[in-house]
């Protein structure tokens, strides 16, 4: 049997959703028999591969790099799962949205520092004017809200998908859970 090609992606989030993923503990072994982890911050692949079956996306779309990545991810994946409140609603990263990017950078790199350092404008990706939930940028197939969604919720969602069902998360999790 061909194993399902699974990827996990970390955009603008705190990695808490990935922690919750690891919290599945020994159930990770069950999954390991059924999936092949082809891309993830947890493994060492540099390029997002072609033909991914399932991808879990943590984090909102906040920078030029996130935007570039998520478009490529969408093109190269069959089922895209928005994992956690940052991906689903924008959550904490989006709290900067009522302010202009320049104001945010000034606050962080000028007003709030004791030793002034230049605002980075090279190598690091430029911030988008607005942080956006994933589905405002590319179509999303499954939404799993929660900050972070529990290991049980993630495991259940994945096993439903592996069984070929579309998970119905009604009542299972919520924003801020």
């Amino acid at each position: 049997m061909n194993r399902v090609r699974l990827a996990t992606v970390w955009l603008d989030g705190c990695s808490g959703c990935h922690m919750s993923l690891l919290d599945m503990d020994e159930r990770l072994l069950d999954l390991a028999d059924r999936v092949e982890l082809v891309y993830s911050p947890l493994v060492d692949h540099k390029e997002y591969p072609e033909d991914v079956d399932l991808v879990l996306v943590e984090g909102s779309v906040s920078s030029e790099e996130d935007l570039h990545k998520i478009r490529k991810i969408r093109r190269q994946s069959k089922i895209l799962i928005s994992l956690g409140d940052c991906a689903v609603t924008g959550n904490v990263p989006a709290m900067r949205n009522p302010f202009k990017t320049a104001e945010v950078l000034r606050r962080v790199y000028v007003e709030n520092v004791s030793v002034e350092s230049p605002t980075p404008n090279q190598v690091v990706p430029a911030l988008l004017a607005r942080v956006r939930p994933v589905h405002e940028v590319v179509p999303v197939d499954v939404f799993v809200p929660g900050c972070p969604p529990s290991a049980d919720t993630i495991f259940w969602t994945l096993t439903e998908l592996l069984e070929g069902r579309r998970p119905d998360l009604t009542g299972k999790t919520r924003f801020g859970a």
Binding site: V88, G90, A94, N97, P98, P133, V140, T170
Partner: peptide, 14 residues
């Protein structure tokens, strides 16, 4: 059964 919000968030400054 709300798992996401289909309308764009407004992000007002309040």
């Amino acid at each position: 059964g709300l798992t996401h919000v289909q309308f764009p968030y407004r992000y007002p400054k309040l």
